[in-house]
Amino acid sequence: MTNPPPQAHDEPFEQPRPRGVSAALRGTAYRYGPRSRHARRRTGLRRLRRACVMLLVTVLAAGLGGYAWADHRLDQAVDLGAYGPRPPAGAGTTYLIVGSDSRGGLSAQERADLHAGGGGGRRADVMILLHTGSSGTTMVSLPRDSWVTVPAHTRPETGKHVPAGGDKLNAAFSHGGPELLLRTVEHNTGLRVDHYAEIGFGGFVDVVDSLGGVRMCLRRDIRDEKSGADLRKGCQDLDGADALAFVRQRHQEARGDLGRTRNQQRLLSALAHQAARPDSLLDPAESYGALSAGLDALVVDRGMSLRDLAAMARAVRDVAGGDGRRMNVPVSGVGVPTSKGSAVTWDRSEAGRLFRLLRQDRAVPADLPPG
């Protein structure tokens, strides 16, 4: 009995053998047919997917770990409600950003290098209201010499009750710390401050240096012995010490403290823009160093999270990119004599109008001057 001829599906599959293909390759082509190649492709894709999933999980775990680490590092020391009743909540989000002359952590040599003097305690050199919401972002500087009503309070160091009365804005910070400053700002503006962020001399210098400096373009030479500023006209990268001197100097500004507040806004915006550069974000050493320096330097309110801090930084960056407005509070007088020396007085009508717009989260019109 003869065996039946083999069926077509029993025959081994053999690839066409193009000329010039080596024997080894011909053998490989012979052993693996189309179905085997498809299976190998599916296996490779499965492995690739598994590798991508593992990589994603690893990145997310590292990110969450870093977020928890950073959130834990925040110094959430400020109690927003420490001084009694507060204005009702408005629309949008309002931040109070403060640069203090705190010398905490600075050695005697560092204080000398930074022209920081030897004063104890801390005072507010920079005070900026930052409002962000559906109508955009507005950055309003409050001159430290603003003549305002400081609400009644108890001096923490003496326990003495002080009735409400007129004083300079930075005196509120000196007498009652961030809590009294915040309450004074709320009392005089009618705005409810949602979050507070403060940075001292040393921390500011560290943040600027960790970012490799900050790019600034100056319209003229600046030389000021009190702040230590010795800067030349033109575009340049300022290190931490030079940046601090730039925001502190006011004696060469046309309008003194008002000119200084404009410089402070310019540098804060430039710093936020610098931190958001792609090369800064993609450089692990630089981004970690800046984050670590920032967390060590900041004092924030008890309710501020890392997410809130990032939102504040984005708002400052947006203003730097032209998506927002920078201005001083409208004023009616500069160098006005008072019982506490010369001061800056606000234009109550125009300032009141500005604060109402911010409270209602409405756009600030162009007819409100930048101050």
Rank of each mutant, 00 (worst) to 15 (best):
N3D: 10
P4Y: 09
A8Q: 14
D10M: 12
P12K: 12
P16K: 09
V21R: 14
A23P: 05
A23Q: 14
L25H: 14
R26H: 11
R26N: 11
R31H: 12
R31D: 06
G33V: 08
H38E: 13
R41C: 07
R42V: 13
R42K: 15
L55S: 12
V57D: 00
T58V: 15
T58D: 09
V59T: 07
G63K: 08
L64V: 15
G66M: 10
L74P: 00
D75F: 09
Q76L: 07
Q76M: 10
G90W: 10
T93H: 06
Y95N: 04
G104I: 00
G105S: 02
G105A: 09
A112I: 08
H115A: 11
G120M: 03
G120K: 04
R122V: 04
D125S: 04
M127Q: 07
L130H: 05
L130A: 06
G133D: 01
S141L: 02
S141N: 02
L142W: 05
R144A: 06
S146Q: 05
T149W: 12
T154C: 08
P156Y: 08
H161I: 04
D167H: 14
K168F: 01
L169Q: 05
N170E: 01
A172E: 05
H175N: 09
V185K: 03
V185M: 06
N188F: 00
N188P: 04
G190A: 10
L191P: 06
V193F: 03
H195W: 03
G202T: 00
G202P: 03
G202Y: 00
G203V: 03
V208C: 02
G213W: 00
M216L: 14
R220F: 06
R220K: 15
K226L: 12
S227A: 08
K233I: 12
Q236R: 15
D242L: 06
A243D: 02
F246P: 01
Q249A: 13
H251C: 02
A254F: 07
A254I: 10
R255H: 15
L258N: 01
R260E: 06
R260Q: 07
R266N: 07
L268N: 08
L268T: 04
H273F: 09
A275H: 00
R277I: 02
S280A: 14
A285M: 11
E286A: 14
S287W: 13
L298K: 05
L298P: 00
D301E: 04
D308W: 00
A310F: 10
A310G: 11
A311F: 01
D318C: 02
G321T: 06
D323T: 11
R325T: 09
R325H: 03
R326D: 11
R326C: 07
N328S: 10
V336P: 08
T338F: 01
T338G: 06
S339Q: 14
S339W: 00
T345L: 12
W346H: 09
D347A: 09
F355G: 03
L357K: 02
R362C: 02
D367Y: 09
D367A: 05
P370Q: 13
P370H: 14
G371S: 04
G371R: 00
